[in-house]
């Protein structure tokens, strides 16, 4: 394995977590390729090959629309996110493309509240090595929770 790529990838995962935790949505969008896939899907659907997902976005346009929706239109209780992301596991590697996975846990803290375990799962990723650095071509967040705790607003 190429250690440099592994370190780059590790850093990339941590930057992703930092962006969503800080609600830096423009930076979040820029971590994806133009024709990306971003999906948040229950493990039950994933394992039964059912296509339904809680959120299923294709292309940067949809990512932008989602961010507009969560910042301008959807009414919700404000909350902070805190992502703990495991070291990535590279499944296959070419100079252009990395197939990899990492476990994540997202803690949610509301204004008057205490941190609670909000969403736990696994990123199933395809990451492209571009001249502008690593970009997510596909990220499927497969979550273990049977239930989403009321609503899921921000990307995870």
């Amino acid at each position: 394995m190429n250690m440099e790529i592994y370190l780059q990838l590790t850093q990339f995962y941590q930057e992703y977590a930092a962006n969503v935790d800080a609600a830096e949505w423009d930076s979040w969008i820029e971590m994806f390729t133009e024709d990306c896939t971003y999906r948040i899907q229950a493990r039950e659907n994933h394992e039964r090959n059912l296509p339904m997902a809680a959120l299923s976005l294709e292309g940067k346009g949809m990512l932008k629309d989602r961010i507009y929706g969560i910042t301008e239109t959807i009414f919700h209780d404000p909350y902070m996110q805190n992502h703990v992301v495991s070291a990535p596991r590279i499944k296959s590697l070419t100079p252009e493309l990395i197939d990899c996975e990492a476990n994540y846990a997202v803690f949610r803290t509301k204004n008057d509240g205490i941190a609670q375990v909000f969403n736990v799962g696994r990123y199933i990723d395809r990451i492209r090595n571009t001249p502008d650095g690593l970009k997510i071509e596909s990220r499927i967040c497969v979550f273990d929770n049977d239930m989403i705790l009321n609503s899921l607003i921000y990307p995870i």
């Binding site: 339904m52 997902a53 959120l55 299923s56 949809m62 959807i74 209780d77 609503s151 899921l152 607003i153």
Partner: peptide, 17 residues
């Protein structure tokens, strides 16, 4: 379906209210 469900553009807010 992105409009509906717990993350939906026009359903997430129903659960909240």
């Amino acid at each position: 379906a992105n409009l509906f469900g717990p993350a939906g553009f026009v359903s997430a807010d129903d659960g909240e209210v």
